[in-house]
Amino acid sequence: MDVVAAKQIGAGLAAIALAGAGVGIGSVFASLVATIGRNPASRPHVFTLGMLGFALTEATGLFALLIAFLILFA
């Protein structure tokens, strides 16, 4: 098989991992919305935690993206 084609297929496969990151970010914000909805007074505390959770979760997706980049370009 052509190496370039293999690289592109590999990069595409690596991008599948973004599904997990999507589910994770959705879960983080679902919990955040539910928590604030239940107790609006907790918003300032919970919001920063939610942002932290979002950033940590999003990073896993970016790891996959990084792998895709490495496969394609490195």
């Binding site: 950033a55 940590l56 990073a59 970016l62 993206l65 990084l66 980049f69």
Partner: peptide
């Protein structure tokens, strides 16, 4: 590694 890759990957992804 996770600390550095998180920042690096975010920035690269955005600019790409």
């Amino acid at each position: 590694i996770s600390l550095s890759i998180r920042l690096f990957a975010n920035m690269v992804a955005g600019h790409v």
